[in-house]
Design a protein around this nucleic acid. Structure first.
Length: 531
DNA sequence: CGTGTTTGACCGGCGC
DNA sequence: GCGCCGGTCAAACACG
C-alpha cells in the first residue's frame, strides 16, 4: 500500500523549509543562515523519522487486517467443519444454516449457488466451498439480504426456475404468475422469506442518499400516512432486482424511512457498500433469529452485545431509550415480510449496557421476527479519522506536533480525542476487547457483520480522498460501465439527499456533495453537536 | 433528445 | 363476489 500522505508530508515539509530559507537569505547574516540550515536539516531528519514511523504503522495496520481476514476464514472453515459432523440434517436445518452462512458479505451470491455448494457435496468443508467463500468475500461489494436463501428446495428438478424465483432477479408479478404454475409452494416460501430492511433516519431531504443509484417508478399515498410513499428501483444495473421504498414517518415528519428489498446483482458504488453491509447484517440477524431469540420474553429479543455494536456504532435499542413508532399501518411492516429496522434516529444506549434488548413492541406480526437496530447518530464511537483512510490511526500523535497537513480537521481531532476520553472513562479497553472476542466467537452473524464492515472500510479507505470523491460525485455513471465512483442519489430532487450519519460512522470514503451538506443541515448539526 | 419523474390505470392479495 | 389497499406499469411530462 502506497503512502501518499507520508510522501506528501515530506514534500510539504521540504517546501516550507526551502521557503523559510529563501526568506532568511534576504535579511540575515551567513552565520544565521548556517544555523537555519542546520536546524532545517535537523527538522528534515525528524520528518524522515516520522515518515518511517508512519510507514511502519501502515504496515502494521495492513498486517492486522490480513490476520483478521485469515481469522475470519478460519472461523468459516470451522463452521463448515461443524456442519460436516452433523449427520443427515433436515431441510430446515440446512435452510437455517445457509441463512447464517450467507451473511452475504456482499454482492449477490445466488442462494442456489450456496446451497448447491452446501448440498452438492456431502463434505461442505471441501476446498471449493471455502474457496468460493473466500472469493466471494474478496469480491463482495454489495449486500444480499438472505431472503432468497431458504426459499427454494435445492432438490428441485427445475433449477432454472429456482434461479428465477429464489435468486436475484426481480420479476414482474405477471411474469412470476406465469412461472408459478405448478410450483406454488416454492414461490410462497420465497414470498414469506423475503426480508426487508428498513432504515430510519432523521432527514429533511426527500430521500436518503445511500450511495446507490435509484430510479423512481411510482408513488402512492398509503393508508394511515399522509405522506406519499415513493418507490424506487436500483438503476445501477438494468436488471437489478433491488427495490427501495421511501416514506416519511407519519408521527414525525422529520424521520425518513427507507425500506430495502432484494439483492443487488452487480457491483455497488463504494459509498453504497456500508449500507449494504449493514442491511445485510441486519437481515441476517433477523433471519438467524431462531438461534438467538429468547423464549418467554415476549415474541422476540436480541442478544447481541451492545459494545460490539458500539464498536461499529450499531446500538440496539434499549427499552428505555429510543422512540419507537413504526408506521403501524404501513406495508413497511407488512405481515408478509419480516422486517428489520435500522434506527438512525435514536439516542445512544448507555455505554455499559451489555445486552440491550429490542422489545417486541414494534413487531407488527408475530409470525415474523422484527428487530430494531439503532445506528445511533449522536455518539461517535469510531473516530472520523477513519474517513480519510488509514491516517486516522496516526492523526492524534501527528497532530500534536504538526498542524494542518494530515489533520483532516478540528472536528475529526475532537472526535478522536473524545473517543479516547470516552474509552478511558466509560469502560476499560480490556473489557471491550473481551466482550468483542466473546461475541465474535459466539455469533457467526456478527463475525460476518464485522468482516463486511472491515472490508468496506479497508476497501474504500485507500482509494478515495475527499476531493476526488467530490469530483467523482459529479460524474454520471454510464450503463454497462463498472461503477466505482461515489455519487449522490440523482433521484433526489434538486440533488438534495440525506447522507445519513451512519456513513460517517462507518468512515466510508464518504464524500458529501456540496448540495448535500448545504441542504441537509440536520446531519451536519448532529455532527457538530457531537463535538 | 435522452433521462428521470409524475401520475392515473391496472393488477393481485386479502378481508369481509 | 366485492371492495380496499399496496405495488407496478407506462404514457405523459419536465428538465438539462
Amino acid at each position: 500500500m502506497p503512502t501518499p500522505c507520508v510522501v506528501g508530508l515530506e514534500e510539504r515539509s521540504l517546501e516550507s523549509v526551502v521557503a523559510h530559507q529563501m526568506i532568511s537569505q534576504d535579511h540575515q547574516a551567513p552565520d544565521r543562515q548556517n544555523i537555519e540550515l542546520e536546524s532545517a536539516k535537523a527538522e528534515m531528519g525528524e520528518v524522515k523519522e516520522e515518515n518511517e514511523r508512519l510507514k511502519m504503522m501502515l504496515d502494521k495496520i495492513e498486517k492486522d487486517y490480513q490476520s483478521l481476514q485469515l481469522c475470519f476464514f478460519d472461523i468459516i472453515k470451522q463452521e463448515a467443519s461443524k456442519r460436516c459432523t452433523k449427520s443427515a440434517p433436515s431441510h430446515e436445518q440446512i435452510d437455517q444454516e445457509s441463512e447464517l452462512v450467507s451473511l452475504c458479505l456482499g454482492r449477490s451470491t445466488p442462494s442456489h449457488e450456496l446451497k448447491r455448494d452446501e448440498k452438492g457435496c456431502n463434505n461442505p468443508c471441501n476446498s471449493k466451498t471455502i474457496k468460493d467463500l473466500e472469493w466471494k468475500y474478496n469480491h463482495n461489494i454489495g449486500w444480499e439480504s438472505t431472503e432468497q436463501l431458504a426459499s427454494s428446495d435445492p432438490s428441485s428438478k427445475e433449477p432454472n426456475k429456482q434461479i428465477v424465483e429464489a435468486g436475484d432477479t426481480w420479476l414482474p408479478s405477471k411474469t412470476l404468475k406465469t412461472m408459478r404454475n405448478g410450483d406454488d409452494e416454492i414461490s410462497q416460501q420465497t414470498h414469506v422469506k423475503r426480508t426487508r430492511v428498513s432504515v430510519r433516519a432523521r432527514c429533511d431531504t426527500p430521500t436518503v442518499n445511500d450511495g446507490c443509484h435509484w430510479r423512481k417508478y411510482g408513488q402512492k399515498i398509503s393508508r394511515g400516512n399522509p405522506c406519499p410513499r415513493a418507490y424506487y428501483r436500483c438503476a445501477v444495473a438494468l436488471e437489478c432486482p433491488v427495490r427501495k421504498q421511501v416514506q416519511r414517518c407519519a408521527e414525525d415528519m422529520s424521520i425518513l424511512i427507507a425500506t430495502y428489498e432484494g439483492t443487488h446483482n452487480h457491483p455497488l458504488p463504494m459509498s453504497a457498500t456500508a449500507m449494504a453491509s449493514a442491511t445485510s447484517a441486519a437481515a441476517s440477524m433477523l433471519l438467524s433469529g431462531s438461534s438467538i431469540s429468547e423464549p418467554g420474553l415476549g415474541s422476540t429479543t436480541t442478544t447481541i452485545a451492545a459494545p460490539i455494536l458500539n464498536a461499529f456504532n450499531l446500538n440496539l435499542l434499549d427499552n428505555s431509550g429510543a422512540k419507537r413508532f413504526y408506521v403501524p399501518n404501513s406495508s413497511l411492516t407488512t405481515p408478509l415480510f419480516p422486517t428489520v429496522t435500522l434506527d438512525l434516529t435514536a439516542p445512544p444506549s448507555p455505554p455499559h449496557t451489555l445486552f440491550n434488548r429490542s422489545s417486541s413492541s414494534f413487531v407488527s406480526n408475530p409470525r415474523f421476527l422484527s428487530r430494531s437496530l439503532s445506528f445511533s447518530s449522536s455518539e461517535p464511537t469510531i473516530p472520523t479519522g477513519w474517513d480519510s483512510g488509514y491516517h486516522g490511526y496516526t492523526a492524534v500523535p501527528y497532530n500534536k506536533t504538526h498542524t494542518g497537513f494530515l489533520n483532516p480537521g478540528k472536528q475529526s481531532q475532537h472526535f478522536y480525542q473524545s473517543y479516547l476520553e470516552k474509552n478511558d472513562q466509560a469502560s476499560s479497553q480490556e473489557s471491550i476487547t473481551e466482550t468483542l472476542t466473546k461475541a465474535i466467537a459466539s455469533d457467526p452473524t456478527f463475525r460476518s457483520a464485522i468482516a463486511s464492515t472491515i472490508s468496506s472500510m479497508v476497501g474504500g479507505g485507500a482509494t478515495h480522498d475527499n476531493q476526488g470523491g467530490v469530483e467523482r460525485l459529479c460524474q454520471k455513471p454510464k450503463w454497462g460501465e463498472p461503477v466505482q465512483a461515489v455519487y449522490p442519489d440523482p433521484s433526489a430532487q434538486n440533488g438534495k439527499a440525506c447522507q445519513t450519519s451512519y456513513f460517517n460512522r462507518f468512515s466510508l470514503p464518504l464524500s458529501v456533495s456540496k448540495s448535500t451538506s448545504a441542504s441537509s443541515p440536520t446531519i451536519e448539526d448532529q455532527m457538530n453537536r457531537q463535538v
